[in-house]
Lab assay of single mutants.
Amino acid sequence: MDVFMKGLSKAKEGVVAAAEKTKQGVAEAAGKTKEGVLYVGSKTKEGVVHGVATVAEKTKEQVTNVGGAVVTGVTAVAQKTVEGAGSIAAATGFVKKDQLGKNEEGAPQEGILEDMPVDPDNEAYEMPSEEGYQDYEPEA
């Protein structure tokens, strides 16, 4: 019985440690998101679009440190934060509304985080759909 109880105690310690790591990862992701939003706020009209992409990228980098179902929630929060940063930029006159959601080359930025393969159960990952990809044929 002692062996059984000791095993359960060790398992509990492992769960607590994993929860603490997840909590730490979420806190880091939130900190990076805040950094990115402050970065966007300090940019001029020309830099705002690039700044919004930076927020998304920093958040995406930190999301990889967070495991399990938390990833889905962090990704949703990050996307809403990026959308909010863009709205703030438009409201303050840093950028025109028609410039939001495009990178410096004018290509749409939507789907940055949505296409990231995420499995809350950590069982399997699927690649994003290939609808947006084109076949590449090298020139002879």
Rank of each mutant, 00 (worst) to 15 (best):
E57K: 08
T22H: 02
K58F: 12
K10F: 08
K21L: 11
A107H: 11
G36Y: 09
K45L: 14
K60Q: 04
Q109M: 04
V70Q: 01
S42W: 15
E131R: 08
V40I: 14
Q109S: 12
K96G: 11
G106S: 13
K45V: 14
G36N: 14
A29M: 12
S129Q: 09
A90M: 08
G106Y: 12
A69N: 05
E114Q: 05
A85S: 04
K6R: 06
G41F: 10
A124Q: 05
D121E: 11
G41K: 02
A140N: 11
A140L: 10
A78L: 14
K10Q: 03
E57R: 04
V55F: 10
E13A: 14
E137W: 07
E20Y: 12
V55N: 00
A27F: 14
G14Q: 15
G47S: 14
V49T: 13
Y39P: 00
I112E: 06
V49C: 13
A85G: 06
E105M: 08
Q109G: 03
Q24V: 07
M1H: 00
E35R: 08
G84Y: 13
V74L: 15
Q99Y: 09
K12G: 02
G93M: 03
K97C: 13
N103H: 07
G84P: 02
E83T: 07
G86A: 07
T54I: 13
V95G: 04
E114L: 07
T44K: 01
T92L: 11
A76H: 10
V40Y: 15
E61H: 04
Y39F: 09
K96F: 13
V70D: 01
G86H: 11
K102F: 01
E20N: 12
P120T: 11
G31C: 01
E20W: 08
K60A: 13
V82D: 02
E137N: 04
G31D: 08
E61W: 14
D98E: 10
Q99E: 08
V16M: 15
H50C: 09
G73H: 12
Y125L: 09
Q79T: 05
G51I: 14
A29S: 02
G47P: 01
G14T: 15
E20S: 02
A19V: 11
G111N: 14
A56T: 08
G132V: 09
Q62H: 06
F94N: 03
P108L: 08
V15C: 06
D115C: 05
A85R: 03
A69V: 07
P108R: 10
K12F: 03
V70I: 14
E126I: 11
P117M: 08
A56M: 14
A17Q: 12
G86F: 14
I88P: 02
G106C: 09
I112Y: 05
E57H: 05
D121P: 08
V95N: 08
A53T: 15
A56R: 10
K102H: 14
V74C: 09
A76N: 11
G41Y: 09
L8A: 01
D115T: 09
K12D: 00
Y125R: 06
Y39R: 07
V74S: 01
L8E: 00
Y39N: 03
D2Q: 11
I112V: 12
E57S: 06
G93E: 05
T72V: 05
A107Q: 05
M1K: 00
Y136D: 02
V66G: 02
T33H: 01
Q79L: 11
G25Q: 15
A11L: 13
V37L: 15
P108Q: 08
D2C: 04
M116D: 09
G25I: 13
V118H: 10
H50N: 10
Y133K: 03
A69K: 08
G51N: 05
D115M: 08
E123I: 10
G31Y: 14
K96P: 05
S129H: 07
E137D: 08
M5S: 03
A11C: 15
V70R: 01
V74R: 01
E126V: 09
E131P: 09
S87M: 13
G41T: 13
G47E: 04
Q79N: 06
G14C: 13
V48D: 00
V26R: 00
E130S: 04
K34Y: 05
A85L: 15
N65H: 04
G7D: 00
H50E: 09
L38E: 03
E104L: 10
V49D: 01
S42E: 12
K43I: 14
A53K: 15
E126L: 06
Y136S: 14
A78T: 10
T44E: 00
D135F: 11
V3Y: 02
G132E: 07
G51R: 08
Y136E: 03
T44I: 15
A27T: 03
M1A: 00
K43H: 05
V15I: 13
L38H: 03
A17P: 00
K32W: 15
A124W: 12
A90Q: 14
V26N: 00
E137Y: 08
G7H: 04
G101R: 07
T54K: 05
D98A: 03
N65M: 07
